[in-house]
Design a protein around this nucleic acid. Structure first.
Length: 320
RNA sequence: CGCGGGGUAGAGCAGUUUGGCAGCUCGUCUGGCUCAUAACCAGGAGGUCGCCGGUUCAAAUCCGGCCCCCGCAA
């Protein structure tokens, strides 16, 4: 059997989702000319620098890496010299100018983690969880000058389990995305796919997640708070503020669950109380959230019961 | 030289300002009480106070250096 000619690729992406897709392309022996990813940024506390997961894979596989600060003329010239046949973009994190997208013979295609036209934008995985959707998926599409507005090449849905969080859902989507991409690329370059226009009237957008999105409002339903916990698992986490000795301390909740049974007495919203002998909980507008692990700013993560040993006043306080 | 909090018994913390017996809560061990228990009572074990050096009659505490953990900012 004769081996098909595979298109020469340039890959653009940054987080774990992207790196899994890049790995599968390499595994399928696509020639990856270069990888473009976000610049490294300096240390957390001056200790180590953050390197994008995509860059790590590229380093392992000895693929050329480009980390442009700006997508300027110099970047365009560099890309033109490479002469890629196709650009693959997966969660790159920057909006690419049309002039760049049109450089390759087979254009530029994007692997987006939602069923477009739903959840266009920067955080489709987070928002699928926050909105408590029962399913989401992968769309592979041609890129145009809009954000996730291009014509669709292929699409696949997957179920979101109630306990899925950002990490597990990202993993599932990346696997599905890799598979769909490996089916879509050959079909596309052979001209077997007719791009399908999106129904722009049904489009929804999602914004970049900000740190402040992780601040919990205890007047929300327990399920909504839990959804944020699932969605913000990697970053920014969920947190609240606790007044101790006159100072407001940021306190993060690193392991929580929704209480199955409501206690007899109702507490203030945001109040910390003993749910039972072994569990500490906080009251929301419609239920109770059990807090298993907690982290006070400047301290390590600890089991809430241990935390209580050192800060007995935590019980009965009201979070802000 | 970006800003800040922290390292004290197995766990979580107080004590450091003003140097002077190593403390609290939980766990753990032993005994007691109890029909029984994660409850209660009595008793015990468990510490290089992150590391190195300095000051001092005396350092967890003051001074200098180093290591490690964490929050913010990017």
């Amino acid at each position: 059997m004769q081996k098909e000619e595979k298109p020469k690729l340039v890959f653009m992406g940054t987080p774990d989702f992207s790196s899994i897709i890049l790995e599968s392309l390499i595994l399928e022996e696509y020639p990856v000319l270069a990888v473009i990813t976000q610049p490294d940024y300096l240390s957390k506390n001056k200790r180590e620098e953050f390197v994008s997961p995509v860059k790590k894979i590229a380093l392992e596989k000895n693929i050329e890496i480009y980390q442009p600060e700006k997508l300027d003329q110099e970047f365009k010239n560099w890309l033109e010299k490479l002469k890629p046949d196709l650009i693959i973009v997966a969660a790159f994190g920057k909006i690419l100018p049309e002039k760049i997208l049109e450089i390759p013979k087979f254009k530029s295609i994007n692997v987006h983690a939602s069923v477009l036209p739903k959840l266009r934008g920067a955080s489709p995985i987070h928002n699928a969880i926050i909105e408590d959707l029962k399913e989401t998926g992968i769309t592979i599409m041609l890129m145009d000058k809009g954000v996730d507005t291009g014509d669709i090449l292929s699409q696949k849905s997957i179920a979101i389990e109630p306990e899925d969080d950002y990490i597990t859902l990202t993993g599932k989507l990346a696997v599905v995305g890799s598979k769909l991409l490996s089916e879509t690329i050959p079909a596309w370059i052979k001209g077997e796919i007719k791009p399908l226009k999106q129904n722009h009237a049904e489009a929804t957008m999602c914004q970049l997640i900000e740190k402040s999105d992780g601040k919990i409002n205890w007047n929300e339903p327990a399920r909504e708070i839990y959804n944020k916990f699932r969605a913000f698992k990697v970053w920014p986490g969920i947190f609240s503020f606790w007044e101790n000795k006159g100072a407001l301390n940021k306190i993060s909740f690193t392991a929580i669950e929704i209480a199955k049974e409501k206690p007899g007495e109702k507490h203030h919203q945001g109040e910390i109380f003993k749910y039972n002998e072994k569990q500490i909980a906080v009251q929301t507008i419609d239920g109770v959230i059990i807090i298993d692990k907690i982290q006070l700013a400047g301290k390590n993560e600890t089991a809430t019961l241990d935390f209580i040993n050192g800060y007995p006043d935590f019980i009965g306080s009201i979070l802000k």
